[in-house]
Amino acid sequence: MPWSSDPLAWFDELRENRPAGWDARTRSWYVTRYEDVSGLLVDARLGARRVEYCPPGLTERQRDTYWLLMGFVDRWPVFSDPPRHTALRQLLRRLFAPEATRRVTDAVAATVGARCRRVPPDRLFAEAVRPGLAQALAALLDEEPEDLPQLTEWSSKILAVGSIESYRPEIGEAARQALEEFSRFVEDRCDAGKGHLARALRPALQAGELDLLDATATYAQLVTGALEPSASATAVLLRELTSGPLARKEFTADPGAAITEALRLATPFHLAPRRALTDIPLHGEVVEEGSRVVLVLAAANRDPRSFPDPLSFRPGRPARPHLAFGRGRHACLGAGATRHAMAAVVVQLLEAGALDGLPPLRPVWETDFGARFARDVRPASA
């Protein structure tokens, strides 16, 4: 099965038949079983900085654009190694202090609570849930809400570049322009010291510890890593909460367990690319030093060895940490804020009775090799 037709099915096939599989097209090892992925996420034999590789057949301009964008993505904290990664996490940790979580939940509650009472049911996700989560992101970063759509658009264009498996030059060119515009915005914000994130980054910029691309990469990671995963996992919750009374009872009894299961099923970011720092034996193969190793979070979170009946929503599963947020030193710093934001969304919808009488809803997914995002939630019969 070609991965381009259905990435999730391809990942599942690899997990069952080639749990440590070499793919010559992308010159990468794909690791797909839960126990392997979970262990390798914290294994010192893997580095986060990615292997340098350029897709074949590009023009000189396209290659320049590709290397610019890949170099930019390599600056994201999630793709950095110590000591740089450690320093970046220390800068960002203050953004996720308890007072920041309160700002996030207050913003979600105010927006969703007001909007869900006056939007038609078929626009609930688009006009109440997503705006509520966007307001949460604005509150987290201390950015003006009216600026957020532009930040999201720039980040989406950069994210659309995808991985080497799915790189398209025309999308790369749009991403290059978005990066230039995003960098100018970040430069202005940091120069003025406006916003929680800009104020956190400014001293390191002034000291020469970071440069403008580093600061822009940090903005981009937070924007892309906050809104879309929260929205996608919330879309899964809406699907379950409108499928029958049982899911509502389960959410009310243990919101945390329901949110955890929704995050596992959503796993918006499929991959955690790494680089082998030494030879690694795995399932009878040897992953050679310097190889690109792709830890497939989506396949691991659907592994029936660890999650029986893995595609079913079962909040009462025995405790088994999902990997949607990664694990170890590269685990998402915003995991707690995401959970609080999702809980605030559902509480507001239930208290307002916004889900009462709705037909079963289903997420409308936009799926690429490296990610799956919910673009809308519509009646299953539509």
Rank of each mutant, 00 (worst) to 15 (best):
182 F>K: 06
190 C>N: 08
22 W>E: 11
7 P>K: 02
46 L>Y: 02
369 F>L: 12
126 A>V: 09
276 A>T: 06
156 S>E: 15
265 L>V: 14
143 E>Q: 13
11 F>A: 03
48 A>N: 09
208 G>P: 04
46 L>Q: 00
208 G>R: 11
277 L>C: 09
348 Q>S: 10
349 L>T: 01
255 P>M: 04
96 F>A: 12
249 K>M: 13
360 P>I: 12
155 S>V: 01
99 E>Q: 14
96 F>C: 10
104 V>E: 03
46 L>P: 02
331 A>T: 11
96 F>D: 03
272 A>S: 13
352 A>L: 03
169 P>R: 06
184 R>F: 15
94 R>A: 13
380 A>S: 05
372 R>M: 06
132 G>I: 01
148 L>E: 13
76 W>A: 03
295 L>M: 07
3 W>R: 09
33 R>N: 04
359 P>T: 14
199 R>N: 02
26 T>R: 01
331 A>G: 15
85 H>Y: 02
366 E>H: 11
304 P>R: 04
274 R>Q: 08
109 A>E: 11
123 R>E: 07
136 A>L: 05
147 D>E: 15
370 G>K: 00
259 I>K: 06
192 A>V: 07
350 L>I: 04
363 P>R: 12
269 F>T: 05
133 L>V: 15
339 R>P: 09
271 L>K: 09
119 V>T: 00
182 F>P: 12
79 F>A: 01
106 D>I: 14
168 R>E: 15
158 I>Y: 07
349 L>A: 01
271 L>I: 14
268 P>M: 05
108 V>G: 00
111 T>C: 10
76 W>R: 03
156 S>H: 10
181 E>L: 15
373 F>E: 00
381 S>C: 12
13 E>Y: 02
16 E>Y: 10
95 L>M: 03
180 E>Y: 14
207 A>G: 14
304 P>F: 04
53 Y>A: 11
38 S>I: 13
264 R>F: 00
122 D>C: 12
369 F>E: 04
143 E>N: 12
12 D>P: 01
180 E>G: 13
78 V>H: 08
333 L>Y: 10
87 A>T: 08
175 A>E: 12
18 R>F: 15
255 P>W: 06
92 L>C: 07
161 V>K: 11
201 L>M: 03
108 V>N: 00
256 G>A: 15
347 V>Y: 14
94 R>C: 00
148 L>A: 09
361 L>A: 01
260 T>P: 01
238 L>E: 08
281 P>W: 07
9 A>L: 05
42 V>Q: 06
10 W>K: 00
139 A>Y: 10
326 G>H: 15
80 S>D: 01
203 P>Q: 14
187 E>P: 02
154 W>K: 11
198 A>Q: 02
257 A>M: 05
100 A>T: 08
365 W>I: 08
258 A>K: 00
12 D>T: 08
186 V>F: 09
162 G>L: 14
307 F>D: 00
265 L>R: 08
73 V>D: 05
219 Y>R: 06
